[in-house]
Design a binder for these strands. Structure first.
Length: 294
DNA sequence: AACTACTCCTGGAGGC
DNA sequence: TGCCTCCAGGAGTAGT
């Protein structure tokens, strides 16, 4: 499922290949993909820039319109270049090498150089908004959204204060809340909690200041690593063998990379959740480790 | 206000 | 081989 690193990786690859290109043809295969705007008016628009805002991919056109795209759970983009090579990203199903259009292809764009782009989405949750630039910016600004997990300063004092409002909610649920931190999803929440040695079901309000600092550092580190080294690879709920990330997510029963105890799967905040029961104890950290947040 | 549960949705995996 | 059931979860919303 595309989270911040997947969207950022897509953004970089698409920007490199699409800026300056003009859309020559559009085929919409799932009309409800477009919440706002008439996709047929994409024809003739020239790509000026591709930005990322949290998990939104924002295409800016030379005529001051914007295409805002959210891949949600299972969106993926495959760009096929004139020489037949592909650049792809997002959810890994169907395989990026699948013949296109696939039955899950929801949008097809043809570019003026003969390359074409498919938006595939198995579960049809992806959404698009085609809007004049000011309306698009207003739409993005209106999203309840915390600091960007990759780009914005993650101030422990500010975020600790917010955690106080979530006294009893499991820390993982708060990490998944985009209003707290933008860009973290199920995989990287598990990874950051593992890195920080914090049990995903710990009440958010019980975390010590030290733990909050450590957790924020891990969020940033995990997201940065995923962007730099290639995204966490999970297929059909299983981690792809040999991948550096994820270390615990989708690795039930596999040895913890730190202590070799088997990784456990449970459900927290209605999400499949993986953690090491030894490295991430449910009890608050040792007594000598600072005061709990009230 | 904080928190939980439900709702969209369908391909793929696993059981028999 | 072919049914059938279950599972995956981002984010909005309704209910407690």
């Amino acid at each position: 499922m595309p989270e911040l690193p997947e969207v950022e990786t897509l953004r970089r690859g698409l920007a490199e290949r699409l800026v300056g290109r003009t859309i020559a043809a559009v085929e919409v295969r799932l009309p409800k993909l477009f919440v706002q705007g008439d996709p047929t008016t994409l024809v003739g628009k020239q790509v000026a820039a591709i930005r990322r805002v949290a998990k939104f991919l924002v295409w800016e056109f030379a005529d001051d319109w914007s295409l805002v795209l959210h891949l949600n759970l299972t969106g993926q983009i495959i760009l096929q270049l004139p020489d037949g090579t592909r650049f792809a990203g997002g959810h890994p199903i169907p395989a990026f090498t699948v013949p296109l259009p696939h039955k899950t292809t929801r949008l097809l764009l043809t570019l003026d150089d003969g390359s074409w782009l498919a938006l595939d989405d198995v579960r049809t949750f992806a959404r698009a908004w085609l809007l004049p630039r000011p309306a698009a910016e207003a739409f993005l600004a209106a999203q309840r959204r915390g600091p960007d997990a990759l780009l914005d300063p993650l101030d422990p004092a500010t975020l600790s204060q917010q955690l106080r409002r979530h006294k009893r909610a499991p820390i993982k649920a708060v990490l998944l809340d985009q209003a707290f931190l933008a860009g973290v999803g199920n995989i990287y929440a598990d990874e950051a909690l593992f890195g920080a040695g914090i049990h995903p079901a710990r009440p958010a309000g019980d975390l010590s200041e030290t733990e909050v600092v450590r957790l924020l550092a891990e969020v940033r580190a995990v997201v940065q690593l995923a962007v730099q080294e290639g995204v966490a690879r999970v297929r059909n709920g299983r981690a792809v063998p040999g991948a550096q990330l994820p270390r615990v997510h989708a690795r039930r029963g596999e040895p913890c990379p730190r202590c070799r105890q088997p990784i456990v799967k449970t459900v927290v905040a209605q999400r499949g959740t993986y953690f090491c029961p030894v490295c991430q104890p449910l009890e608050a950290a040792s007594p000598n480790s600072t005061t709990a947040i009230r």
